[in-house]
Computed example of a mutant assay.
Amino acid sequence: MSEEFDRGLELRRAMFGPEGAEKQLEAATDFTRPMQEWVTKQCFGEAWQRPVFDRKTRSLLTLAMLVAMGRSHEVKIHTRGAIANGVSKEEIRELLMHSIIYCGIPMAVDGFRSASEVLKDLGLEA
């Protein structure tokens, strides 16, 4: 497709494994394929590849924004990606603790619930 698409697919694979990379594209329908290709190219091939912030920092920023928006499903996906990008369980917890003040208790509790589910799946939480 393009250099940006290839870089994006490589990053999606590194962060989310085949389930979040190739399988997302393979499962795309005629209706959703343009969106999947655009996300791969623009989000992961461009925005995530910009200089200044490393992947770990981008993961923390992304999680914070997703918690603030109450996007539970995306918090789960990006918790998995954050772990792959070197974010520790303790750093995720502190991000969520900090979100209590700036996002409110309901958003933070939902973020904790979503992140805990993924951490448990990854064997990082009892």
Score class of each variant (00 low, 15 high):
S99W: 06
L25H: 03
R113D: 05
G123I: 11
E46Q: 12
I100Q: 08
R13N: 05
I100Y: 15
Q36L: 11
A21D: 10
E10L: 01
T32V: 02
D121C: 03
R12N: 04
G104C: 11
L25V: 14
M65E: 14
D121I: 06
A68P: 08
I100F: 15
E91D: 03
S114E: 11
A64K: 02
E117C: 03
V67T: 13
G123Y: 06
Q24R: 13
R13Y: 01
K89R: 15
G86K: 05
F5E: 07
F16T: 00
L124C: 05
E94N: 11
G123L: 08
H98A: 14
K41I: 05
S99G: 12
L95W: 02
A28L: 03
Q42V: 11
I100D: 02
V67W: 10
F44E: 07
R71P: 07
M35T: 14
L11D: 09
A47E: 09
R50A: 07
L61R: 05
Q36A: 13
W48A: 10
L66S: 10
A28Y: 07
D6T: 15
W48M: 13
F53D: 05
E19L: 07
S116V: 02
L95S: 05
I105F: 13
E46L: 03
L25R: 08
R50W: 00
A108I: 09
K76T: 14
A115L: 00
A68R: 12
D54M: 02
I92E: 01
A126E: 13
A28G: 11
K56A: 14
A68D: 10
P106G: 07
E94A: 10
G45H: 04
H98D: 13
